[in-house]
Simulated assay, not measured.
Amino acid sequence: MSDTNPTDQRLNDLEIKASFTEDLLDQLNLTIYRQQQQIDRLLAEVSQLRQQMPEGGGGAARSLRDELPPHY
């Protein structure tokens, strides 16, 4: 490749860098898409858990005896 023009070599190098950059961008977009799907699933799960929680949300005072394991 010693007979190539320096401008042609620079252009070739820039095309290679652009190709790698496009690939990286595609990978990042896929990662963001998957993370958003996971966030949506987690939000749905939190919503379901809140619906299953008894009214009052556990804010009522509890006796320490209620916290003891059953073998005491």
Score class of each variant (00 low, 15 high):
Asn5Leu: 07
Thr21Tyr: 14
Pro70Leu: 03
Glu45Pro: 00
Gln27Arg: 14
Thr21Val: 00
Ser47Met: 01
Leu30Ser: 13
Gly56Lys: 02
Leu68Met: 12
Asp66Phe: 03
Gln37Ala: 13
Thr7Phe: 05
Glu67Leu: 07
Ala44Leu: 03
Gly59Tyr: 05
Gln38Trp: 06
Gln36His: 04
Pro70Asp: 08
Glu55His: 10
Asp8Asn: 15
Pro6Gly: 01
Phe20Asn: 15
Gln36Gly: 02
Thr31Tyr: 06
Leu64Pro: 01
Ser63Lys: 04
His71Ile: 10
Leu30Ala: 13
Leu25Phe: 01
Arg41Cys: 04
Lys17Gly: 03
Asn29Val: 01
Leu30Pro: 00
Arg10Gly: 10
Gln52Trp: 03
Asn12Lys: 07
Ile32Phe: 03
Gln51His: 12
Asp23His: 10
Thr4Ala: 12
Gln48Cys: 03
Arg50Glu: 12
Tyr33Ser: 10
Leu30Ile: 11
Tyr33Arg: 09
Leu24Asn: 07
Leu14Tyr: 12
Asn5Met: 05
Glu22His: 09
Asp40Val: 07
Asp40Trp: 00
Ile16Lys: 06
Gln36Asp: 09
Ala61Val: 08
Gly58Thr: 02
Asp13Pro: 03
Gln51Phe: 04
Phe20Ser: 13
Asn5Cys: 15
Glu45Trp: 03
Tyr33Leu: 02
Arg65Asn: 12
Leu11Tyr: 14
Glu67Cys: 06
Asp23Phe: 09
Ala18Asn: 15
His71Thr: 15
Asp13Leu: 10
Gln9Leu: 13
Thr4Asp: 13
